[in-house]
Design a protein around this nucleic acid. Sequence first.
DNA 1: TATGAATGAGTATTCATTCAT
DNA 2: TATGAATGAATACTCATTCAT
Lengths: 211, 211, 211, 211
Amino acid sequence: MVRREEVHDVPTKQVDAKAERALRRRAEILRAAVQLFQEDGYHSTTTHAVADRAGISVGLIYQYFGNKEDLLRAAIVDILGEFRDRIPVAMDEAGDDPEARLRSGFRTLVAVIDEKPEATVLSYRESMTLSREGRDELKKLEVETAEPFRRAIEDGIRSGAFRAVDADLVVHNLLLVAHGWALKHWRLSTWLDLDTYVQRELDLVLGAIRP
Amino acid sequence: MVRREEVHDVPTKQVDAKAERALRRRAEILRAAVQLFQEDGYHSTTTHAVADRAGISVGLIYQYFGNKEDLLRAAIVDILGEFRDRIPVAMDEAGDDPEARLRSGFRTLVAVIDEKPEATVLSYRESMTLSREGRDELKKLEVETAEPFRRAIEDGIRSGAFRAVDADLVVHNLLLVAHGWALKHWRLSTWLDLDTYVQRELDLVLGAIRP
Amino acid sequence: MVRREEVHDVPTKQVDAKAERALRRRAEILRAAVQLFQEDGYHSTTTHAVADRAGISVGLIYQYFGNKEDLLRAAIVDILGEFRDRIPVAMDEAGDDPEARLRSGFRTLVAVIDEKPEATVLSYRESMTLSREGRDELKKLEVETAEPFRRAIEDGIRSGAFRAVDADLVVHNLLLVAHGWALKHWRLSTWLDLDTYVQRELDLVLGAIRP
Amino acid sequence: MVRREEVHDVPTKQVDAKAERALRRRAEILRAAVQLFQEDGYHSTTTHAVADRAGISVGLIYQYFGNKEDLLRAAIVDILGEFRDRIPVAMDEAGDDPEARLRSGFRTLVAVIDEKPEATVLSYRESMTLSREGRDELKKLEVETAEPFRRAIEDGIRSGAFRAVDADLVVHNLLLVAHGWALKHWRLSTWLDLDTYVQRELDLVLGAIRP
DNA sequence: TATGAATGAGTATTCATTCAT
DNA sequence: TATGAATGAATACTCATTCAT
């Protein structure tokens, strides 16, 4: 007879399947939430509406998220995390030239924002809704997102590719302008598409910092 | 044409005193509301809290404002109206030179934002909370605010002072950067003061559009 | 013209009327709550049910009580307070003789319990439901209720009217037996009425402590 | 007649092992439930918490108990059943003397209560929570517990060992006082231990009914 | 004008219970 | 037997708004 402990042993495969299923569920719920938060605003979105959109019951939301605010936090962290992860990769693919790195990073930043504009807008609109901890987590991610841009600019300044500008301020502008694509999309999209926006903004920003 | 106040048979003086008192009350309530909206967010602010802060009873709010949303709309319209009114004046005082006009307009814009950062942040955070009509009113004011900037840039392009840039895009950037002073004040203020911010941003923006 | 502050002055009479009305409301709500707590138990009683029974809206409950638990606390404190207030009076009316004082006090105690058996049962059934503070308040009241009985017994022991018994234990028994009238009323009432119960219990208790 | 377990064609030994294991499981769950009911109250105890404490899954609770209330009923019946079973034995061991029988029965009653004070308190606090049937089962057990005491007193009255007191009332008091050891343990234990409590209470009760 | 008692619709969250595995 | 993911009914509490005074 097998030891009792072993009775509960389950094939690793099954465990993985379970864990994967759980992750998918979580993502489904989060997607539904982000959609609705964007459509109606965080406060106007009910947990029941999120459950309906995700095709599950209200109760299940609380098995994957602590509460409604946690859902908001996860939604915002989700996109900020994507920024943090994808931008360095894109910049590295662009090689060593500071200007090329900046272009690639900015292009990726706006592209990610264009993929999930709702989440970006959310992070502006609702970050005050979060608790102290949630907001601190956000700020940390924001700083991490800014970092590779800052380094590229400082490299450029050192190499003489850029003027001796306030690197932090330029990064601030780059991020603002990137977010602007989501924040003012209703107006920008009347005369610009994504590529043109990226192109023209890069021309402006780089034009301002070239020697 | 008779002024509306005089329709009833009351001495003008008394009417004025009354009207003035009413205006003051309205302003007091609005001020309390803007403070609290900024401190706790629109949704977390109760009408009772606004009444308390303003030193009046809840009921009275409804004599000056239609409902809570109307209070929000008024708060946002208030600052946007100030932009619309003060910027053209500031630009005109700067004379005819497009660059001087831009500088003066931007400086004023950031100054007004610095005076009431709450309201600016509010207009980003809560404009989706407004009804269709409220939002349309906002967009109209936003366009009116942008207009003098756009004209100065186009004048500059025509006169050869600026390159043939996308004027609307530059205005979009100017406004974003101005709002950025309120939106990211927590970070910017760690290394910049108002004047330096204005100066450096103008250098960047103008550097990008000069021939 | 009167000073503004005086404008709000209201006749004292009116203030009293308001305060009195508020007290009546509070009592109405409390009565409804005690009834329902007794009928269905605290946890099975909904705040809506309390409001319905009291003939008011749910919201109003929260203008008079902090929350549902506060309603329970108030209900229990209410009766314990009555014990504390009425028993010393009854004992004093009985004169100086320890036995007469004990009889009178016990008779009153059981009478009050008989008037509001629900509240007595409540204090047994639901006191654990209360928060630490609530329970401490209860214990304090319980001790205050016991005190006059304890003193009468010790007086009797000193004067030789009673044997040298454990006074605290006798008080404990007296209170238990009094509460028993509410706790086991369903059985006791099959063969006893209030007066007989009081009479027989006093005979037993006094028979046990007489020399 | 075949035992129910044997209906299916399984070796008796295996059935017994199974049945025994099931009984142990049931007892484990019940023990966890009683602990938690006492610590947090019946309503604040979740079935998940019971499962955790018992080291099993929620689902399994429902294989041994019909529902949560059934768990409560079982917990209370458990201790009342122990009263019913152990008291007659203790009294018989004391011989024929009514007073000796009473003493032995009471001592055992308080001892059992002291072993499981939680369950005793539970039966006071939560019996109203039970359904009609559950409460009737409890009352039946209570009467059965009382019966041997009643008989001992009546025997004593007949034999002249006791005065012609109301036997049912004396039993009522005995049970109340015994339960009091659990209900007011927080206060009694400040100056009494179990044996002293039993001793002094017996002295008081017997002192009241001796001729 | 001004008050604030009263309303009651609206909602996040919990938790006993089920059932596919 | 045993699991625990999933359900969804139930409920305390809030707060914008009204209206009698």
